[in-house]
Design a protein around this nucleic acid. Structure first.
Lengths: 143, 143
DNA sequence: GTGGTTTTGACAATCATTATCAATAAGCCT
DNA sequence: AGGCTTATTGATAATGATTGTCAAAACCAC
């Protein structure tokens, strides 16, 4: 049986209050900072549950941490992430959704999950990095 | 100064010989199995270097491992990976390719790279796991 | 309230990855 | 070739995130 505990609620709310993605560790710290004596293991469990229920999205940060994010619906979507400033845009991916299913089925695969994330430079960072690249190129030329 | 060592070459070749993605640990095991006395730390360093040089792509597997693949190839393609037996099928992804570019452009993003990989159970493992699940369910019933 | 069972949480265990640092060997110079 | 400098290696320790453990506490049905 599934029981309702204030801990699970606390995690859900903390996640809702968070803009963008947050790691389990960071969420635990946030909760502690708010005076909640919740345990670290419990945060991991709650996040895992939320993710399985489709109430949260999870992705792996470039340095191997698992990041979570509140996800209003059970709907499935993907992300467009700026590799410089971390700006994240949700993108509907019906096409890709269908494509992934089709491809999986075509090869006899079942239970297809997919990792579809697009990394790039947002408009702002594109401008910023244009300057940076120039500098980097100059440095690269130096033997 | 950048020195040429047989270890670095060994890692590069092992990665080239590998179809699809492989973890640092797995690559180290493979090398050891081939009789190479290369150290684990060295494999990590070599893979990191290859990744920074753009000679290898890296992505995070769903369970937090870093996966690498040789990347200097002309064609760009994606993978359909069996999460049970590791079977990897290369898939052409022109549709997704175009979609990723379009979506990125639509949001003002440039230099769009994308991680598009589909995980699932291959036909074989689907059957195997059907049996396994049955057993697991039976076990779960037993109090 | 009481009972049965889930859930919690402190801590240990695990796993991938990174840092350490003495020993080795690559590449330059003569 | 021989010597020298220093990048590189590799065994191991350290780190850090995540998961397992298990007794104690909390929750829900009755």
């Amino acid at each position: 049986m599934k029981r309702n505990t204030w801990q699970r609620e606390a995690v859900r709310e903390a996640l809702d209050d968070t803009e963008g993605f947050i790691s389990a560790q960071a969420l635990h710290s946030t909760l502690h900072a708010s005076g909640s004596p919740i345990g670290l293991a419990t945060v991991y469990r709650a996040l895992g549950d939320l993710a399985s229920n489709g109430e949260a999205d999870s992705l792996q940060s470039p340095d191997g941490e698992a990041l979570y994010r509140a996800c209003s619906t059970t709907g499935h979507h993907h992300h467009l992430i700026c590799r410089n400033c971390g700006l994240t845009v949700e993108i509907a991916a019906d096409e890709v959704e269908a494509w992934a299913k089709a491809v999986a089925a075509e090869h006899g695969f079942t239970g297809a999950a997919h990792v579809v994330d697009v990394f790039g430079l947002c408009a702002n960072c594109t401008l910023l990095q244009a300057a940076g690249d120039t500098a980097k190129l100059a440095a690269a030329q130096k033997p």
